[in-house]
């Protein structure tokens, strides 16, 4: 993937497919620590032990349109290519957490990219899901909690086009403020 934000989008679709009601996306980037960390945590249906052991292998998928699941192996490889770490934990009925870290100054590291578009796409995919997106940098932290948006909007859905574009701009401005997503 050209951007880590695209991996995040892809991995989070797995959470949506697993019928998660709550999904937490956390990104931390630190130039001083030379490290980017990404975690996607959901309360979806989870995976059993056997599937969990296999999902990092690019020949496993529960999809029927093709035999090879690509999302998790790609994310894992993009982390390991930068001397980073990857882990995934899951429990049936409880949920799944996917973690990846990246050495920030590694030549093979993809840029974080357009997180704002990723969040807008995810919210548009299912505006009933409770998303909590946290992004921290050396200069601060930004948190977007869709519950706070619902509190302002009442009955107006988050998937309303005017609301989605507002959310996109809101994220961009706040990331700008903490110098986030630029690397």
């Amino acid at each position: 993937m050209k951007e880590l934000s695209l991996n995040i989008l892809d991995i989070t679709y797995n959470s949506i497919k697993a019928n998660a009601e709550k999904i937490e996306i956390s990104i931390s980037e630190s130039i001083s620590a030379n490290l980017i960390q990404i975690e996607i945590k959901d309360n979806g249906h989870g995976m059993d032990h056997e599937l969990l052991e296999k999902v990092t292998d690019p020949f496993v998928t529960t999809r029927t349109t093709r035999k090879v699941g690509l999302g998790i192996p790609l994310f894992k490889q993009s982390a390991e290519d930068t001397d980073g770490k990857f882990s995934i934990s899951s429990k049936i009925g409880e949920g799944t957490a996917v973690y990846a870290s990246f050495r920030l100054d590694h030549l093979d590291r993809a840029p974080i990219g357009d997180i704002s578009s990723t969040m807008v796409s995810l919210i548009q995919a299912n505006d009933q899901i409770h998303f909590i997106y946290r992004h921290s940098t050396d200069s601060g932290e930004f948190v977007l909690d869709t519950d706070d948006l619902h509190a302002q909007l009442g009955d107006v859905p988050l998937s309303e086009p005017a609301v989605l574009s507002w959310i996109g701009e809101y994220i961009k401005e706040n990331l700008e403020d903490i110098q986030g997503g630029k690397i």
Partner: peptide, 8 residues
Amino acid sequence: LAELQAIK
């Protein structure tokens, strides 16, 4: 966030 009120 209060701007959402206007959209609403």
